[in-house]
Computed example of a mutant assay.
Amino acid sequence: MLDALIAHPVPAEAARLAALLTGAFRCRSVDSAGSLPKALWTRAPRLLVLHLSLSGLNLDETLRLLREDDALSATCVLAVLESREESGIVAALESGVDDFVAEPLHPAEFRARARALVRSPREFSAPTAHIKVAGIVVDSARRVATAGGRRVVLSATECRLLAELAGRPGEVKSKESLIANVWGMPFDVSAHTLDSHISNLRRKLGPPGQLIETVRGVGYVIGKRKR
């Protein structure tokens, strides 16, 4: 059974979320940002459910810790937002979290998003876990890439997205197919969510990230477009 760490300011709510994950995850919880690093290092969780109202939380620092520590690099982050306001959603996605849910939570959606995030690399729709295209190499198993010889640590969603594009260079991928293959769930994932992850990928990859081309009105392609 996979480990999950729930960081929520209200212990009773953390217990409710843990109950929703029963059977798929072994859960523990913390109720403050100060307790979070120790809990992460004590036993690296596969899933971190992170309520963004957690007292003392510095989201950028928390995500940097996860991405730069090899022992924690496989941890997926599911952010919990207090509302569905667009500004909060955009800020969360641009920070680099893997996915989000917003309150009031829908139990089935919460469970599905949590399970989708921790799919193994074997379940990615890309044909292989190790992919090369132009100056980019994607290692799905380790959730890292190299771009122009520079190591880039990716979130789980960023890795799936890059692998999906790089697996068939030159092939235009519609936004609908990317959402279906990367998120792999029946719940709504907006085109704006996809666009935010693409923007993060380009920024992280640096100059090689410009190989990811927007095909207006359709979706995205990496590398020279096939005619």
Rank of each mutant, 00 (worst) to 15 (best):
P121F: 07
L162N: 07
E123L: 14
L194P: 05
S125A: 14
L40T: 03
L65H: 03
T193I: 06
G135F: 08
R160T: 13
I198D: 02
A71C: 10
D60N: 07
N200P: 01
T42S: 11
A91W: 01
D195W: 04
L72A: 09
A4K: 13
E82Q: 11
A39V: 08
L50D: 04
T146V: 13
E158I: 12
L36W: 02
D139F: 15
P169H: 13
R160V: 14
T62D: 04
F187N: 01
L66I: 09
C27G: 07
R84A: 10
A163K: 13
L205D: 02
L17C: 08
F124N: 12
L205S: 06
H106K: 15
S32L: 09
S196A: 12
P45Y: 04
A166F: 11
V10G: 09
A74I: 04
F100D: 01
V153D: 09
L17I: 05
L36K: 06
I179G: 08
S73R: 12
A108W: 03
S83E: 03
H51I: 07
A7L: 10
V10A: 15
L72G: 02
F25N: 10
L154Q: 12
R111T: 00
L52T: 07
R150N: 08
E82I: 07
P9G: 15
M185G: 11
R28S: 15
L48Q: 01
K204V: 09
G135M: 11
R67S: 09
L194D: 03
R119M: 08
E68H: 09
F110S: 07
A15P: 00
F124W: 11
L36H: 10
V218N: 09
A156N: 01
D139C: 12
R28V: 10
S32F: 06
V221K: 05
L52S: 05
E68K: 13
V101C: 12
Q210W: 02
E82S: 14
D195G: 10
K173I: 15
E123N: 15
S155N: 13
D139T: 06
V77R: 07
T75D: 01
R16L: 15
V101S: 05
N200K: 14
V77W: 06
R111N: 00
P107S: 14
P104L: 11
F100I: 06
D98Y: 04
L20C: 08
E85V: 14
R113A: 02
A156H: 08
K226I: 09
E109Y: 00
S120V: 08
V182D: 04
A19R: 14
G223S: 00
R203P: 03
H51S: 10
R151C: 15
V97Y: 05
T42V: 06
L47Q: 02
K224E: 08
A18S: 12
A116W: 00
L65G: 02
A114R: 07
R168G: 12
S120P: 02
W183Q: 10
L201D: 03
P169I: 13
S196N: 06
H197R: 14
L57V: 05
K226D: 03
D69M: 12
R150Q: 13
